[in-house]
Amino acid sequence: MNKTSNPADLAEISKRVRRHIIEMITAAKSGHPGGSLSATELVVTLFFDTMRHDPANPKWADRDHFILGKGHACPVLYSTMAECGYTPIDQLNTFRRLGSIYQGHPDVRFIPALEASTGSLGQGLSIGLGMALAARLDHRPSRTYVVLGDGEIQEGQVWEAAMFASFHKLDNLACIVDYNKIQLDGFVEDIMPLEPLADKWKSFGWHVIEINGHDIPAVQAAFAEAATVKGKPTVILAHTVKGKGVSFMENNPKWHGTAPSKEECELALKELA
């Protein structure tokens, strides 16, 4: 794979990933476009710029670990990993079909390069903490990145994990909240508001960085800053737009878990040309 720190290149890859997301969910006639599109720059920047990893050697001991807590957004992860060369791009459209490696939620049995099987919200951060502890015990340089949904952090286990991470001073882990303000039943603010969210994480002992999650240089800078913080974990609150990049999907709760029709797919791809 060709890694790059050039924001224009990362934006180009993000556009390709967004096209994959739309196409694979359309082909599957099911899936979660909104939260995949909101997390695109975050995941692409991690895999193409920030993280130490090698698609030719997915179990490299010194690799960084990536966990997608919000497993339903796996189209963004599958597309990005395929673009990196972990898995075939030409099979992305088998998403959610029987026998496909691209299961409905990330499944390590089908893609061993995945770090965790997720899909039940609230568990990814805890798994990541275990990996971060193991890396520290083994004196490995591995850092662990966990992307959580904003709705996901309504799960109590996330706050158990938040307490654990700061108590154990896991500065080799960064948690990224894809703060797109929408969950399945509607707007987060109407379902179970999270604010003041930065204060919540600060009070749990975390270093907090707040960014626009679609601003690639800001995303790069946040990961760089996280790597310099010592003695405490970092959370990046990434303000994003659900459905980002497809005008009729943006900020509309309908597109949390609805597949586009063929016509809608064509419209979306035109916008992402």
């Binding site: 001991a61 990541g128 193991a134």
Partner: peptide
């Protein structure tokens, strides 16, 4: 709940 998943993370990492 956190303990079990932390344990799984430790085991998954070897």
């Amino acid at each position: 709940a956190n303990m079990v998943a932390v344990g799984s993370g430790l085991s998954a990492a070897g």
